[in-house]
């Protein structure tokens, strides 16, 4: 079967199918490896961090590292998962429109009988599909590790936390794509998204360490983890705020992309 109606979506997928396989394997492997340390290190970990200043402990998200949920959050959802997925997603978002426009490989697609909006939304959807795949793989690795390494966290709460991470990563990747498509500069898209993501990460760390609520309120990382979804389940308000990143950025990028000069 040939998916003519969604040729742009299919094309992005075809270009990145190998890449996503490699990233998926790496994410699953790293998740697995770190969670495998839990049975050995759980108690020691608690002892180790007890010597740390409290502010540093909180900034690193280690204040609850002695619990399974705390360890999972500090290692996978608070650091490795989002960081690796953001590196992938922001790079991809910057590449599929602006990057390919800059290196000329998008020219034939743009000259084809496909509207610019259509091309934009299909390529954005493909980015989301690739990110979804990686988040799903990471989540499966976490769920598989649960019984193996005696983590004892609820499946529902893992899914809720993964959902929040998916919205966060998708949001910043959407910003990279949207800013890139709006400007025609891959660098601008990647810099905007990576800059905002870094700021969000720092805001949450500082907010946790010093208890500055304003910074937490502004940080998508705090929207993702502030409600402790691994303990309390889905934080609907946090998830809604995370979704807002994409809901705001995507149409703005599409609007500008449809109106500007291409291949300049």
């Amino acid at each position: 079967m040939r998916a003519e109606g969604i040729a742009s979506f299919v094309r992005v997928w075809a270009d990145h199918r190998r890449g996503v396989t490699g990233w998926g394997a790496a994410l699953a492997g790293i998740t697995f490896m770190y969670l495998a340390f839990w049975p050995m290190m759980g108690a020691d970990m608690q002892a180790m961090v007890e010597g740390m200043p409290e502010a540093l402990m909180r900034a690193l998200g280690y204040d609850r590292i002695g619990t399974a949920a705390g360890y999972l959050e500090a290692v996978v959802y608070g650091l490795l998962g989002p960081v690796l997925l953001l590196v992938y997603g922001i790079g991809l978002g910057g590449r599929v429109i602006a990057g390919q426009e800059e290196d000329g490989t998008l020219e034939l697609d743009l000259a084809a009988p496909v509207g610019r909006s259509r091309l934009y939304w299909e390529r954005l959807a493909a980015v989301w599909a690739l990110i979804t795949t990686l988040v799903a793989i990471t989540t499966l690795a976490v769920l598989a590790s649960g019984p193996l390494f005696d983590l004892g966290v609820s499946v529902v709460n893992v899914l809720a936390t993964s959902l929040a991470m998916w919205l966060l990563v998708g949001g910043f990747s959407t910003i990279a794509l949207a800013v890139g498509a709006a400007t025609g500069r891959r660098g601008a898209g990647v810099a905007a998204a990576a800059g905002l993501a870094t700021l969000a990460f720092v805001f949450r760390s500082v907010a946790d360490a010093a208890g500055v609520d304003v910074l937490a309120a502004l940080s998508p990382f705090a929207w993702m983890l502030g409600g402790e979804p691994l303990v309390h389940g889905l934080d609907a308000l946090g998830a809604a705020k995370l979704a807002l990143l994409s809901v705001v950025a995507a149409p703005l990028g599409a609007w500008r992309f449809a109106r500007r000069d291409l291949m300049v």
Binding site: E4, V10, R18, D103, T105, E107, D109, A111, P113
Partner: peptide
């Protein structure tokens, strides 16, 4: 039908897949 002056082709797909993709953009 358009042939660019500086044609850039990228991606990991084959020449045939690329041509089929461009045909798909034209509804086949």
């Amino acid at each position: 039908g358009y042939l660019p002056g500086e044609l850039a082709l990228g991606g990991r797909i084959s020449a045939g897949e690329h041509l089929h993709h461009l045909a798909a953009l034209r509804g086949g």
